[in-house]
């Protein structure tokens, strides 16, 4: 009688383990900046990621009729072209810290969720900023 319960217990535990680890493995979304992507492209290929950085001045193209938004996201070291379909958020502007959630397809990052990282004390970083500065800026703006 006892071993029956034991087997049942193991099956339930196995099912829960599968649900949890299977689910976590597939659905972890990493937060990275463009230079971290460039340093390790293979690791992030085809995966959902959150790409953080600054909107590069002069790179923003938005057409309100087709709702297509294109811009370049940079962390001072590397940059990545971003395509996003939808209205830019209210505080979206040049040199603003943003986080885009989506996937890489080729060299372009296709975002489906665009967040502006702002806070009351937000200031655009000084010239010559590093990826670490950008990361800190975005983290503090939460």
């Amino acid at each position: 009688m006892r071993w029956k319960y034991f087997v049942g217990f193991l099956i339930i535990l196995g099912a829960i383990g599968y649900l949890v680890w299977g689910g976590l493995g597939k659905n972890l979304v990493y937060f990275i900046t463009p230079s971290e992507y460039k340093a390790n492209e293979g690791k992030y290929a085809g995966k959902r990621i959150r790409l953080g950085g600054l909107v590069k001045p002069g790179s923003v193209r938005y057409d309100p009729n087709t709702l297509e938004l294109r811009f370049v996201i940079t962390d001072g070291l590397a940059e990545v072209p971003v395509f996003h379909r939808g209205t830019p958020p209210a505080l979206f502007k040049e040199n603003q810290g943003v986080v885009v959630e989506g996937k890489f397809e080729g060299e372009t990052f296709y975002g489906d969720n665009l967040l502006v990282k702002h806070s009351e004390t937000y200031q655009a970083p000084k010239e010559g900023y590093t990826p670490e500065d950008v990361r800190r800026l975005i983290e503090e703006a939460k």
Binding site: L19, L24, N27, L28, V29, F31
Partner: peptide, 24 residues
């Protein structure tokens, strides 16, 4: 836990919860 252990910043989105919750 991930941030404390490896320093990586990750998020667990709705897909994880939906995946685990549906069978339960």
């Amino acid at each position: 836990v991930v941030e404390a252990v490896s320093g990586d910043q990750v998020s667990v989105g709705a897909p994880f919860f939906n995946f685990s919750f549906a069978p339960l």
